[in-house]
Design a protein around this nucleic acid. Structure first.
Lengths: 246, 246
DNA sequence: TTCTGTGAAATAGTTCACAGCG
DNA sequence: CGCTGTGAACTATTTCACAGAA
């Protein structure tokens, strides 16, 4: 478990980095651990936590081993220790001040979301382009004009930019956030942003999620109705034949 | 969380299912295609669309071939045809009425989100447990009491349940939605829901997304500063304790 | 005995590279 | 020609299964 190949400042050798798949699960484990900690559990087995997180126990053990966390054989993992270590790996031992661009319904809801601040992502600033909105106070923060975005980012030491504008303004907002020096963006519009490689963008799009749900629902409905139809399209469908399957 | 199947009784071995990875990209392609269609483009090469969707062209071609879509060699894919076919595969040729549980800031923002209805996910009903909220009208829909949830699901032929309650009420909301017969849930709370296998749950959690962003930002910062900071932090620096959840 | 840590096998997903159609 | 469709190689990720620590 001792990282044989330490993480070097050098970038020549490819460092054994934590896989994206693992990173994506870490917050889930953390969430489960909060629940366990709240229940007063002192330790937890990979099997139990894996069940909570809905993953395979071996996957959980490998994830933890991969970020340098070890448990105790015959016992399990120490809950508090796990919480602490995962938090450190995720960078949650520091605050990441957030700026929200676009104070419409969504922006307002996000600004008012308690979970953000309590989890280390304080909403420090809000900007909008609408003069009627600028100057108003939302969740205790005065909305500023998007023109001073760069200044705000500096002043409030913003780490993450949240894009909650209409889709039509999303790319421009992203450009300005990047111009202001931000490297982490969270995009709530359905727009596929174009950004330089050093910028991390994550997107949360309602329509995308619903479309994926509808795919699976349609599939299960089709399966249930006994139609042997896998992905065949329906009635009004007819297109070039060309179906050579192996 | 996004457990894919669990559906297939293996009657016919002849079903080459669309992979989860492909399904996840389909909405992205669709989004890009909308843009192209709006620009009046009649056809598009896998290379061009792949660039827009930020994927490898071969991946795109394989995805399309996998759902039975073919292009024209030497030319590319017909944009309108692609839009139509992908829509059909995703099940977007029908409407999927949505019910939102929890009409707080977030629920309200979601209810007011235009994109939902225009993309085939009409918000047909809203329920809440707060007597002060029940009876009010949001986005043209009267909020009903969560007690009549099952009735509402029937009446409005709801297909998807959106959970926008406080975290503490999320599991109960999920239970009721499932009890009412729904099989597709979209969860906006950080709670890891426990559901039967036939239910599809997708989660959109702000904190999770931000935590992942903070991981990558921390990593890139560490790399840039040349600190040989490894995965494990030896000298434990005590830090904020993960105390509460809402 | 229980439960971790991890080789090794299995599975999934991506990308190359090129034959061959339009 | 240009661009699709796809075998084959490659990379990533998951899962099994079991040795061995506590």
């Amino acid at each position: 478990m001792s990282t044989a190949d330490g993480v070097g400042p050098e970038d020549h050798p490819t460092v054994p980095r934590v896989s994206d798949a693992t990173v994506g699960r870490l917050p889930v484990y953390l969430q489960g651990l909060f629940g366990l900690a709240g229940d007063g559990e002192a330790s937890v087995s990979s099997e139990a936590l894996a069940e909570i997180a809905a993953v395979n126990p071996a996957t959980l053990r490998r994830d933890l081993a991969g970020i340098g966390i070890s448990g105790t054989r015959g016992v399990g993992y120490d809950v508090k220790y796990l919480v602490h270590e995962i938090s450190v790996v995720l960078g949650l031992n520091q605050a990441w001040p957030v700026l929200i661009v676009g104070v419409g319904n969504l922006g307002r809801a996000l600004a008012n979301y308690e979970g953000l601040t309590t989890q280390g992502f304080p909403v420090r600033a809000l900007v909008d382009i609408d003069p009627d909105v600028v100057g108003t106070s939302v969740a205790g923060v005065v909305v500023e004009h998007v023109d001073v975005l760069a200044k705000v980012v500096q002043r409030d030491e913003i780490s993450v930019g949240v894009i909650a504008t209409p889709a039509s303004a999303a790319q421009a907002a992203a450009d300005e956030l990047i111009e202001a020096g931000l490297e982490s963006l969270l995009n709530f519009t359905p727009v596929q942003l174009v950004t330089p490689p050093h910028v991390q963008v994550r997107g949360v799009d309602l329509a995308t999620e619903l479309q994926i749900l509808s795919f699976y629902q349609q599939r299960s409905t089709a399966a249930a109705s006994g139609t042997g139809v896998p992905l065949s399209v329906d009635a009004d469908e007819q297109q070039r034949e060309s179906s050579d399957r192996d």
